[in-house]
Amino acid sequence: MVRTELKFAGYGGQGVITLALLTAKAALEEGKEVSQSQAYTAVARGGSVWAETVISDKEIDYPRAMDPDYMILLSIDAAKNHKKELKKKTGAFITDPSSLKKFKSKKKTHYQIPAAQIAIEQFKMPVVANVILFGAIVEITSIVSKESARRTIENTVPPKTLEMNLKALDEGFRYAEQLKLEISKEHAVNITA
């Protein structure tokens, strides 16, 4: 992996920066070079936020995302503002349909992870949505191994909630794995057709 760029966008309080931070920490866990930056409006909650994580095996010269590989969108505004930045042919969108329903991409791969829904239905805890999404991102992007992702969660969350968070992470892995399978089947169908 030479250089992978992830861009996250949403509104303040949604966990945009948390997600960027988790991916950065996980990359560091594997000894990779990482650069994570963010921008936000002056409003602390509810303003628009975007964050970037650039991960590389080599030293990172330009630390910003130049040509993102993955775009994680969490709100309608974010989709509007940042959709066009994903130009790479192999680029993919990752969205949460609970906060971004109508989003569709014709040309790019699109992973829909209903993290917020899973968090409420399975865990009765809306806060673990970020961890589910993180699990899904790791599975989809394979920026780090599952083991490193687990260690990152162990080092980040409070000990009391560790068990639940690890379960949420596994759920993220599982859901994304299945989704990937489905999408590749669809893809195969498309090609043969």
């Binding site: 931070l21 950065a24 560091l28 070079e33 990482v34 650069s35 994570q36 930056s37 963010q38 990172i60 630390p63």
Partner: peptide, 9 residues
């Protein structure tokens, strides 16, 4: 502002 809020190894 940008360097101050960036996170790196």
């Amino acid at each position: 502002a940008w360097l101050g809020h960036m996170r790196e190894k």
